[in-house]
């Protein structure tokens, strides 16, 4: 496997960058002035107590919030220095570059094959059957699911186990070959063994993709991520190397959270 992330040449330029991001649901403000940089080919973990706005921030990164009528985003978010909320950037195109995996596995009620082929088909990245076959195999392999499902590609994706479904969803996201993959608590609906598999997978994927993961579990953040951002009540409290955040946080709120005093 080779690196494909086009702009990863300079290690320090951020892949994505949030600048004074504010989000409102109707009158209610869910995020206040979040400044956050996402480094390429790293796993960035977003942690914090429930309702602090982690998912909200994550959904800003590929404009999934556009789907919610009452949601309003202010501030600036860039992908490779391009403003993703500018009017000449197309959300559909953006989401092909910034893919997403959700909390609950949500395979389409189609065959495993068609689940994976869906993205390439709509984006027209593959036209012939052979090309699609290839993408399906590559993606499933990368997601570590190929061996388990290669004999039943035409069976419905909803028939898989929870962990397999989630890996199918990851494979589905990979099939579009995005630059960034957003994961919103991808393991919260899974058992420990399935969780371990996904964590392993995330670590492998880092080689080719930039990953942002929201997680509830601090152990998970510590295991898979290189950088960690701590959110609290709609604010980004602290961000830094995972090591540093977990061993030597600067903010007392972070300290409180990771030592389990609240959250």
């Amino acid at each position: 496997m080779s690196k494909t992330s086009g702009s990863s040449a300079s290690g320090t330029t951020p892949k994505m960058k949030g600048d004074k991001v504010k989000v409102f649901y109707g009158e209610k403000q869910a995020l206040q002035d979040v400044d956050l940089e996402i480094k390429p080919n790293e796993v960035t973990a977003l942690i914090g107590p429930s309702g602090c706005g982690k998912s909200t921030f994550l959904r800003c990164l590929n404009r999934m919030n556009d789907v919610i009528d009452i949601c309003r985003v202010e501030g600036k978010i860039t992908l490779d220095n391009e403003d993703i909320y500018s009017s000449d950037l197309d959300p559909v195109q953006l989401r092909a570059r910034v893919g997403m995996v959700f909390q609950k596995p949500n395979p389409f009620p189609k065959s495993i094959y068609d689940n994976i082929a869906y993205g390439p088909r709509i984006h027209g990245t593959a036209s012939s059957k052979a090309e699609i076959d290839e993408i399906v195999e590559t993606s499933l392999t990368k997601a570590g699911l190929w061996e388990e499902v290669k004999d039943r590609l035409m069976e419905p994706g909803t028939g898989l186990s929870g962990g397999q479904q989630q890996r199918l969803c990851i494979a589905r996201a990979i099939a579009v070959n995005p630059e960034v993959i957003l994961m919103d608590e991808p393991c919260s609906a899974l058992d420990p063994i399935a969780t371990a598999k996904i964590e392993e997978l995330i670590d492998e994927l880092r080689e080719n993709f930039t990953i942002v993961i929201v997680t509830h579990s601090m152990q998970q953040a510590a295991r898979v991520s290189q950088r960690t951002a701590f959110f609290h009540l709609g604010e980004l409290v602290e961000v830094g190397d995972t090591e540093q955040i977990f061993t030597n946080p600067t903010d007392s709120r972070t300290q409180g959270y990771i030592t389990g005093r609240f959250g």
Binding site: V67, Q93, A96, G99, F108, G119, I122, R172
Partner: peptide, 19 residues
């Protein structure tokens, strides 16, 4: 969640509806 899954892959609304 199915709609989200499809939009998250960069599908347009009509593609999501039809497929």
């Amino acid at each position: 969640s199915l709609r989200d899954g499809s939009y998250g892959l960069g599908a347009t609304k009509s593609e999501t509806i039809r497929h």
